[in-house]
Amino acid sequence: MTPPLLEVREVVKAYSMGSVLSRHRIRAVEGVSFTMKAERPEIFTIIGESGSGKTTLARMILNTVSPTAGTIRFRGTDLSKIWRGRDRLAFMRGVQPIFQNPFDAFNPLKQIDRYLFTTARRMAGLRTVKEIEDRADQALKKVGLSLVEIRGRFPHELSGGQLQRIAIARALISTPALIVADEPVSMIDASLRMSIVNLLRNLRDEMGVSIIYITHDLATAYYISDRIIIMRKGRVVEGGDARAVLDNPQHPYSIQLKQAVLSPDAAGSGGALLSAGLVESQAELGELT
């Protein structure tokens, strides 16, 4: 039996904060578990607001932060057992990231094609210039661009949408099985946002890549996800089939979250959907004083 693509088991991440005298630990992620199967590619969405621990969780899956407790296995390999450079490269070949800010995902002082070429050389093990350029071009074609368009260009010459496509193309070069996308559309202009979301969906449907989609936006999550978990203060409060959970949330927090989403259909209602939302401020002041 093949091991699951990704197995996250009881993962905890705690940070020490404060000075020597008043040291306290903050638990960013507390006992999160889920499994992604290798047989069927899916879009697995992690929903959470700021401080929910969703980005810390993503970093642990990318193995750039190590968990305080619990294990993460990618295709059966425990990430904490990856020590040698060669194993690290092998892991990164299988798991690639996409970041939130496309304007910062590439060095502003460098031509953008070098990241594609370096990935093709180091991660895909290609040698000749022709092979490398062909592979970069193929990857760019998958995201609706081509090498001719971006060769020699600098990041500031391209739009956020184009940059995010290039970031996805770069991630695809090593033919990963899993892509971890941390808020990939939150900084993209509204008119370009849906094309990136659609692209993620295509990756799953046509290339068989599984995606961990991290977001605070319930609407796009509903649009593309197969399964979701909703996180709050490091814990998973609700999870399951995306449509089922979002159509009919059970946990009070999930319900509150869904109610807070502003619908464009309410245009002209004069703010009927805006909840009073003042309870929380009183609670906060209670903590303060």
């Binding site: 750039t64 490269l89 990164m92 990231p97 910062d104 590439f106 770069r170």
Partner: peptide, 13 residues
């Protein structure tokens, strides 16, 4: 902490 450093790492540099 910039994202492009992360991109470089995952490009195999």
């Amino acid at each position: 902490t910039r994202e492009f450093t992360e991109t470089s790492i995952f490009s195999g540099m």
